[in-house]
Design a protein around this nucleic acid. Structure first.
Lengths: 153, 153
DNA sequence: TTAATAAAATTTAATATTCAATAAATAACT
DNA sequence: AGTTATTTATTGAATATTAAATTTTATTAA
């Protein structure tokens, strides 16, 4: 496993930690996503429905920030969701640059149908770790996820 | 942070661990990938050059398995690398279904130019954690990354 | 040996993703 | 007011990604 590169111990530790982190995330995501196949939702589409359901209507800009995606990407995924009438764009009258995206009745209903299976898949993945290890993983990932130099004032 | 969903403690722990894992991986990847911009390599292209450099020539099938990508995807990324003359396909005479992919001189040279910066970026990311925490992260991710039911005989 | 099966790679169609350029609307400034 | 700058969203071009169908080659079975 890990890298074949032979370097200093410090390099090897960092490289192996990075590789295992990325692998763990990617393989877990792909298994969890299998729960979305039945409803013909992609991961990106699901992520948007999830945000809208649990947070409420959002601007495209906010969705992009939350999901770490570019504006162009959000535009297209919203387009595809809108074609299926799962979400709607609504122009904001106070500031017409914004579109508020909200779930339609069908979008809400589809999400409610899909979420339990998604949650179940996540739990199945995470239960490979004890509860305390899951908490430990949260701690480590929280640090790693911070933007570089976040500790600087 | 974490999910807005309100469920049982077990659900919340699993969901938050999953979300933080995915976030940590994605945000780290995007920062590390910034080191590839100068050389006009995408993440996928870099991953293939890396594998070929550190492991040696591989069949497309092997690359797909190693990188967790489909055959169709590998075909296209190899196409794009081949256009830039960074890799070459070589038909295997013993079994003409296979192509051996190997680095060209230019591919090897480009990789050698890019790798130090990539490694530096990885180290910078991982040094947010102490060495022992990096090792701990490896341990947790190794478990998480295993296929579900891997413990079953 | 022929027929069926399997395996590696390619192609096609659909969606995703980024970056860069553009359009439209608002905000800020003189 | 009028110009400039900023912000949100869209578009276009390039690459990525998957799933499913197809092609080519090799293996197995009858």
């Amino acid at each position: 496993m890990g890298t074949r590169y032979k370097g200093t111990e410090k390099e090897m530790t960092a490289l192996n930690a990075f590789i295992k982190l990325v692998r763990a995330a990617e393989s877990t995501i792909s298994r969890v996503n299998a729960s979305l196949v039945k409803s013909n939702l992609t991961e990106s589409q699901y992520a948007i429905l999830d945000a809208l359901y649990h947070i409420g209507p959002l601007f495209q800009k906010d969705l992009g920030n939350k999901l770490l995606k570019t504006g162009g990407n959000i535009t297209l995924v919203i387009d595809n969701l809108e074609k299926r009438k799962l979400v709607e764009r609504e122009r904001r009258e106070q500031d017409r640059r914004y579109f508020t995206i909200h779930l339609t009745k069908q979008g809400k209903s589809l999400f409610q149908k899909v979420f339990p299976g998604y949650l179940k898949a996540v739990i199945e993945e995470m239960q490979k770790l004890s509860k305390s290890d899951q908490v430990e993983l949260q701690r480590l990932c929280k640090v790693i996820g911070l933007p570089s130099g976040a500790s600087k004032k």
